[in-house]
Simulated scan of single mutants.
Amino acid sequence: MIEVYIDGASAGNPGPSGAGIFIKGNGVVEKYSIPLGNMSNHEAEYHAFIKALEICIKNGYEIVSFRTDSELVNRAVEKEYVKNKHYAPLLEKALTLSKHFQLFFMKWIPSRENRQADELAREAIRKNN
């Protein structure tokens, strides 16, 4: 099984944002720090999730367990619903991508267990032009 730790971060709300993705399992360790431009923190969390899903699909991973410290994203995926309609297209895209896997899991974790993804997200903020 592949474990995928994701985090989105913004310097300001909205402000320069980044996605941090840390992947491990089956002898694999991958780190991604992806600048996202200007957006809110919640949008950055969704975009980090979508980018991670796309990376896992591209790499041919079939059994994935996603970990996030974003209660908003975790709850939305769990219920397949968002209150704020602004995030509905992002959730829809993520749910569609998640169907590509043989097994897909999503779990909320405390921030202290998501430090690597958080550091990568903060690094990505600094990469914005």
Score class of each variant (00 low, 15 high):
1 M>R: 02
3 E>V: 01
3 E>R: 04
3 E>H: 05
4 V>P: 08
6 I>K: 02
6 I>E: 06
7 D>N: 08
8 G>E: 06
9 A>H: 05
15 G>N: 02
18 G>V: 01
19 A>V: 00
20 G>Y: 02
20 G>R: 02
21 I>V: 08
22 F>L: 07
25 G>Y: 03
26 N>V: 00
26 N>C: 01
26 N>T: 01
27 G>E: 03
28 V>R: 04
31 K>W: 00
32 Y>N: 11
32 Y>W: 09
34 I>Y: 08
35 P>G: 09
36 L>K: 07
36 L>W: 05
36 L>P: 00
36 L>F: 03
37 G>W: 04
41 N>W: 02
42 H>Y: 06
43 E>F: 04
44 A>Y: 01
45 E>Q: 07
47 H>S: 10
48 A>P: 00
49 F>Y: 09
49 F>K: 01
51 K>V: 04
51 K>I: 00
52 A>E: 10
52 A>C: 11
56 C>H: 02
57 I>T: 03
58 K>C: 05
58 K>I: 01
63 I>P: 00
65 S>M: 09
69 D>N: 05
69 D>Q: 02
71 E>D: 08
72 L>N: 06
72 L>K: 05
73 V>T: 12
76 A>D: 12
80 E>Y: 02
82 V>A: 13
82 V>W: 07
86 H>S: 02
88 A>C: 00
88 A>D: 12
88 A>P: 03
90 L>A: 10
90 L>R: 03
90 L>Q: 07
92 E>F: 04
93 K>S: 07
93 K>Q: 14
95 L>P: 13
95 L>K: 10
95 L>M: 10
97 L>E: 11
100 H>V: 00
100 H>Q: 13
102 Q>Y: 10
109 I>F: 04
112 R>W: 10
112 R>L: 15
115 R>T: 15
115 R>K: 15
115 R>M: 11
116 Q>Y: 01
118 D>P: 07
118 D>Q: 13
119 E>W: 04
124 A>R: 09
125 I>K: 15
126 R>Q: 14
